[in-house]
Design a protein around this nucleic acid. Structure first.
Length: 139
DNA sequence: GCCAACGTTGGC
DNA sequence: GCCAACGTTGGC
């Protein structure tokens, strides 16, 4: 299983909205690197849900419920989307400042290339974020 | 609201 | 195929 991170501005589509709708088509991606990641996603892959602009924190874990298909918002077959459904909300959101300050996490794509909207997350990074979100295991 | 970083476009 | 110009993103 692979780990990912997707970004969304809460004013456009928030975690709460995903929870409420129970599933969403992750479309509108118009960046080749992000697109390639979407294509690589497998069913049940785990996806961190990051709020950009407002909050700037990882708030929850989504799951890939349907692998890549033609993006319904365009006729251009270059672009794909996947279907995501909400998994668990983090016990405590993990903020960007915290990520930047953490030894394990400061190499995350989120820090290195903050503009990429669909990113890969390593297993070590995944586990570390979960540690931080569950509280007190500070380094 | 500002600005740096990045991706894309288009002229040559 | 290079590179300057431009638009967009996102942190602050």
């Amino acid at each position: 299983m692979a780990y990912w991170l997707v970004k969304s501005e809460p004013s456009a589509y928030s975690w709460d909205q995903l929870v409420k709708e129970k599933s969403t088509s992750w479309d509108g991606v118009r960046n080749y690197a992000a697109r390639n990641h979407l294509r690589t996603m497998k069913k049940n892959d785990a996806v961190f849900y990051y709020h950009s602009n407002e909050g700037t924190e990882i708030v929850g874990i989504a799951k890939v419920s349907k692998t890549a298909y033609q993006d319904p918002t365009t006729d251009n077959s270059n672009w794909v989307s996947v279907e995501l459904k909400p998994g668990k909300k983090l016990r405590r959101p993990v903020g960007l400042a915290e990520i930047k300050a953490d030894k394990t996490l400061k190499e995350m794509v989120l820090v290195k290339n903050s503009r990429l909207s669909v990113q890969q997350v390593t297993e070590a990074e995944w586990k570390r974020v979960l540690e931080l979100s569950s509280g007190d295991q500070d380094s």
